[in-house]
């Protein structure tokens, strides 16, 4: 998440790209393509669709570069474009229509809260890295989305809430649920591999 240029250098690149310098736009693409792809994959759960979203995002950005305003970061602006593109592609999340969200305690129990007999640690290994990826992929789209913005892209709470169209309090609640669900999914992955 630290792979993008500082704000000053980026503003200069944007100005050059607006003036028609393709090299400057390439540099912006290079700086942000991983973040946009990761977010698109979190939303679509599909690498091919995520690639379509990635391409549409940068094509829209190229056309609409004049619309970017410095009050939001360039990355956040791109992520908003990507989210709109992904919403057009992705099937609406009908996984659990009408189902009530579990409370923190239910999510916590799945994550090992109160389970004093299993002080398992997270192994520092290649296998553990794959488990992290699989655990994230196993979550529902809302959880993947908020975790990607906050933990992977490092957006602030305010930026994340604005991008998701939520109040700050609602975003924090969603983030906490998502983190607990992630810890539960990671625990399940590791339990699976321990057998």
């Amino acid at each position: 998440m630290q792979d993008h240029p500082d704000a000053h250098a980026e503003a200069a690149l944007i100005a050059q790209a607006r003036a028609g310098d393709p090299g400057a736009f390439d540099a912006l693409v290079e700086a942000h393509q991983r973040a946009v792809f990761r977010f698109a994959r979190a939303l679509t759960h599909n690498d091919a669709l995520a690639e379509d979203v990635l391409q549409e995002t940068f094509l829209s950005a190229l056309e609409g570069l004049g619309a970017w305003r410095a009050e939001s970061s360039f990355r956040t602006w791109l992520l908003v474009i990507a989210r709109n593109a992904a919403l057009k592609h992705r099937r609406r999340d009908r996984e659990r229509p009408g189902e009530q969200e579990p409370d923190f305690e239910t999510l916590g129990r799945d994550a090992g809260w109160g389970d004093v007999d299993s002080p398992e640690r997270i192994a520092a290994s290649h296998e553990a890295a794959s488990a992290v990826t699989r655990a994230l992929a196993s979550l529902d789209v809302e959880a993947r989305e908020v975790l990607t913005l906050r933990e992977l892209e490092g957006l602030s709470g305010d930026e994340t809430a604005r991008l998701l169209g939520l109040s700050l309090a609602a975003m924090k609640s969603r983030l906490h649920r998502a983190r607990l669900a992630f810890v539960a999914a990671l625990r399940a992955e590791q339990g699976h591999h321990a057998r």
Binding site: D26, Q33, D47, L147, E151, L152
Partner: peptide, 27 residues
Amino acid sequence: RFAEAIARLREEAAREGLPEGVGARLK
């Protein structure tokens, strides 16, 4: 364990690259 899992998620993000060919096709 909760803090460690979230730290792991952040570390994993820093390692992840684009799948092969995606960057070239975008360009």
